[in-house]
Simulated scan of single mutants.
Amino acid sequence: MPDTPPAATAPPAGYAALDALPPTAAGAEVWAALGGAGLLRRAYRDGSAGAGTDPAGLADLLAAVDARFGLAATLSVSVQLATALPVLAAGRHPAARQALDSALAGRSTVALAATDETPGTDLTALRTEVRTDGGGLTLTGTKKWIANATTATHHLVLARHRPGRHFTHFTWVLVPADAPGATVRPADTALYAAAGTGHLTLDAVRLGTDHLLGRTGFGLPLFARHIATERLAGAQWGVALCRRALAATHRHLADRPHGDGTLWDLPPVRQRFAACLVRVQELNALTDGFAQAVAHRYDATAAATLKAAAGATVHHVLDTCAQLWGAEGFRTGGIQELRAQAALFAIGGGAEEVVLGTVADAADSVLDALARPGTLP
């Protein structure tokens, strides 16, 4: 089943390197084109993944990819930009530096292997283990529903080095895709095949200690920092996706005859469409307002707010657009397919119910900020 974006307005300028690729290009192909043209560095301050995210550059890059390619390809790019490469930048050994340089140049892709056989939102229950013995590392476990799994040259594996749920019991490990004992199988999904989605099995994989990323026991704090950026990226991407879907839907409604006019002339249709415009503008304003707090301070409450808002907004807009397209929406590669894929916004990177719990935990500070106009939580 093709994974193509519905017709859109002119994509953002400055990304001519992407124009040679077909709309059905897979995420790894898009990544290679972006890296080869030096465009991936636009997402970071000073062009360095270790220096932090540049919100404007990240938003522009995601919008450029979303305008040209399918949702799965954009997912492949988004996860690497917002989370995988910043985590990889925490590595100080040559193996990590070489992997990062290769990825930024587009010569390779990196998979963020955090989600385990246990529920993905309960990372403290993950079963993948890393043991240190004889001067080396041994990894055993399974990672499921990993974007870029089938195309990655390296997997960033979150593993426990100690039993229990304490947040200091987890560490990141850089695992070469060709390491003996590391096997990948594609996930049973046509919706995200272009993202290289798959499952990673680690059967007593042996590595040197130079494959540890960051300090031992700092795996979850490092992940929490960069999952915040991924949630910002998701909100930015959500705005671009909704705008594109609404633009295509508007053209469809204006061109579809009905009575003496078109579907666009019907007041109920216009009202439903306008409600979507309001929702997207709200998400856009919220994203702009929280961008610096997330990108520079890794504000978990702001990131959770963006994640919850993006999931709800994308669901509302794509559901409405799919209804307004009528039977035409069911064509291969049509709006109904995009609607199914876009359900990811309320699940990936933290289910909506989980991130709402984070917002609830900060209820006092959020309410205090609302009492002071112009103040962000």
Rank of each mutant, 00 (worst) to 15 (best):
A67Q: 09
A67E: 06
R68Q: 05
G70N: 03
G70I: 01
L71M: 03
L71D: 01
A72M: 04
A73H: 05
L75P: 00
Q80K: 06
Q80C: 04
Q80E: 13
L81M: 14
L81Q: 12
A82Y: 12
T83E: 15
L85C: 06
L85E: 11
P86I: 06
P86C: 09
P86R: 01
V87S: 03
V87P: 05
A89R: 04
A89T: 02
A89Q: 03
A89C: 09
A90N: 08
G91T: 07
G91A: 07
P94W: 00
P94M: 01
A95L: 10
A95H: 04
A96M: 09
A96D: 07
R97S: 14
R97L: 15
R97Y: 10
Q98T: 12
Q98K: 05
Q98M: 07
A99C: 10
A99G: 11
D101G: 09
D101Q: 11
D101R: 06
D101I: 00
S102D: 15
S102A: 14
A103H: 12
L104M: 15
L104H: 11
G106K: 09
G106D: 07
R107T: 04
R107D: 15
S108W: 02
S108G: 11
T109I: 04
V110A: 06
V110R: 05
V110W: 09
L112G: 01
L112S: 08
A113K: 08
A114K: 08
D116E: 12
D116A: 14
E117A: 15
T118V: 14
P119R: 06
G120L: 00
G120N: 06
D122V: 07
D122H: 00
D122L: 13
D122N: 10
D122I: 02
T124M: 08
T124S: 11
T124H: 01
T124D: 12
A125P: 01
L126R: 11
R127C: 00
R127M: 02
T128K: 11
R131N: 09
T132S: 12
D133G: 15
D133E: 15
G134D: 08
G134E: 02
G134I: 03
G135M: 12
G135A: 10
L137V: 04
L139Q: 13
T140Y: 07
G141P: 09
K143F: 03
K144T: 12
K144R: 14
W145I: 02
W145G: 02
I146H: 05
A147E: 01
A147I: 01
A147Q: 07
A147W: 06
N148S: 14
A149H: 10
A149N: 07
T150S: 13
T151M: 02
T153C: 03
H154Q: 09
H155I: 03
H155W: 12
L156E: 13
L156K: 04
A159H: 07
A159N: 10
R160W: 00
R160L: 01
R160P: 02
R162L: 11
P163Y: 02
G164M: 07
R165T: 10
H166R: 14
H166V: 00
F167I: 10
T168K: 12
H169K: 06
H169A: 15
F170H: 14
F170L: 10
F170E: 05
W172F: 15
L174R: 04
L174F: 06
V175I: 04
P176H: 13
P176Q: 11
P176G: 08
D178W: 08
D178T: 15
D178L: 13
A179W: 10
A179E: 00
G181C: 03
G181F: 01
G181D: 01
G181V: 04
G181H: 10
A182T: 14
T183C: 10
